[in-house]
Structure formats: C-alpha cells, structure tokens
Computed example of a mutant assay.
Amino acid sequence: MSLEHEYALLGGYNRSAVGKWIARASATISAAAVFVLLSAIDLARSFGINANLPPAVLSLVGAGMVYTLLYWLFDHYAWRIGLLGRLLKVPHLAGSWVCEGVSLDKNPPFPWNARITIVQSWDRIRVHLETSQSSSDSVAAALLYDAAVGYRLLYHYRNHPRVGETDLAAHHGFAELIFPSDGSSASGEYFNGRGRNTFGTMNLVKEAK
C-alpha cells in the first residue's frame, strides 16, 4: 500500500491548467501520429504493397493512451526539470534530509536528531521521519510558494513509538518548514497534540546523493 498522498499547491501554477495543456498536447500528438501512419499506408499501397493498419495500432496512438503516457512522464519527471520546474513554482524536495530538532517545552530544552525522507511527484508527497524512538508519516500536506522566503511545506503527521518505548504515546502533530529557493536546507517548527503535548524547532540539511 502506497503511503504517498495528494498535497495542496498554493501560489504555484494551477494544476487544472497543467492538465488542459497535457490534454491539448495529447490530441495534437495523437492526430499527427494517426496522420503519419495513414500516410505511410497510402504510400505503401501506391507501390503495390498490401498494407493494413490493425485497430490495435490506432488504439496505441489514440489521444487517451498518449495522455496517459504524457501525464505519467510529467508526474514523475518533467515537472521538476529546468525552466519548466521554475515556471511551475513547485520545489523538488524529494530525498534524504538530516534533521536537528529541539523540544522547547522542556527545561532545559531537549535536542533530538532524526532522518527525514521525502517522496514527491507532481501529484503526491510523503514526509517520513525516523528517530531512535519513533517514526512518523505525513497524512496531509500543502506546498506554498512565498516570493519573500522561498517555499513553505505545511503537513499534518501521525507518529508511532517503537516497540518498547512505553514512555511515549502515539500522537498527531503539525509541522511548518521553510525551504530557501536553492532547496538545500530548511528550518521550521512543530507542535504535537492528542497524546503528546510538545513543541519545538527543526533544522534540515539535504544529504548529498
């Protein structure tokens, strides 16, 4: 079962507009492909070659199939490449991040470390955090383009303590992270409720591939 979920996109290029552009491109490509195939059949017949075009071939270049292929390529790759990625105003956050956190509800404040893995496509995202005592996964998220600071990632997560961590309770929480435009670091804050009333700060640095 995939744990990635859809995320809201605020301040970036409208998702429905992207779908319309892909649909137009699919129709154009499909029409061109059918025209080329039919022209090839006519050319072959003009040379006395008995050529036929099976319906299965036409279905492969139909607008629906072309749209499916183009959208898959866009969803997994194209949205984050070069000029197109900058135009859409959606940061590519996928990868592993080293997280240094501080629980500010403690006296004195309590530092903690974690590794965060972000899985992201154009449509879906997942933020997974691992510490020595527990792990958490996002269940809802939003990405906001902010011209002043870069990008904001807001997400709601569910945390589960590891087996044997009897002092910890499963809980829900919320985090807000700010990513500069270069996408190599982030800083933000979190708070927990419904089982663990704590709050604090987080600083992330992206690991090199």
Rank of each mutant, 00 (worst) to 15 (best):
L154R: 13
T131E: 05
E130T: 14
D167R: 06
R86P: 04
G95A: 14
A32D: 08
L153W: 08
S135Q: 04
H128A: 13
W112L: 10
A148Y: 12
L204V: 01
A175D: 12
L38Q: 05
L204I: 09
R162Q: 08
S132M: 10
L144I: 15
S135Y: 12
S96C: 15
N14A: 05
R162N: 15
I41R: 11
W79C: 01
P180Q: 06
A23I: 00
G64V: 05
E189Q: 12
A17W: 00
W122Q: 06
G150L: 02
G164Q: 02
L9N: 12
R86K: 11
M202W: 14
H160F: 15
L143G: 01
R45L: 11
G62T: 02
K209R: 09
I22P: 00
F199M: 08
L83M: 13
R80Q: 14
V163M: 07
L129N: 15
I81L: 11
N159P: 07
I178A: 04
V66F: 07
M65E: 10
N113R: 15
F74H: 03
V102C: 14
L87M: 10
D167F: 08
N52M: 10
P111V: 14
N159G: 06
V57L: 11
L129W: 13
Y190D: 13
M1T: 09
H5T: 08
L88G: 03
Y77N: 11
G195M: 05
L69Y: 02
N192W: 06
V163W: 10
I49V: 15
V57E: 05
T117M: 15
A40E: 12
A208V: 13
S181M: 13
E207D: 12
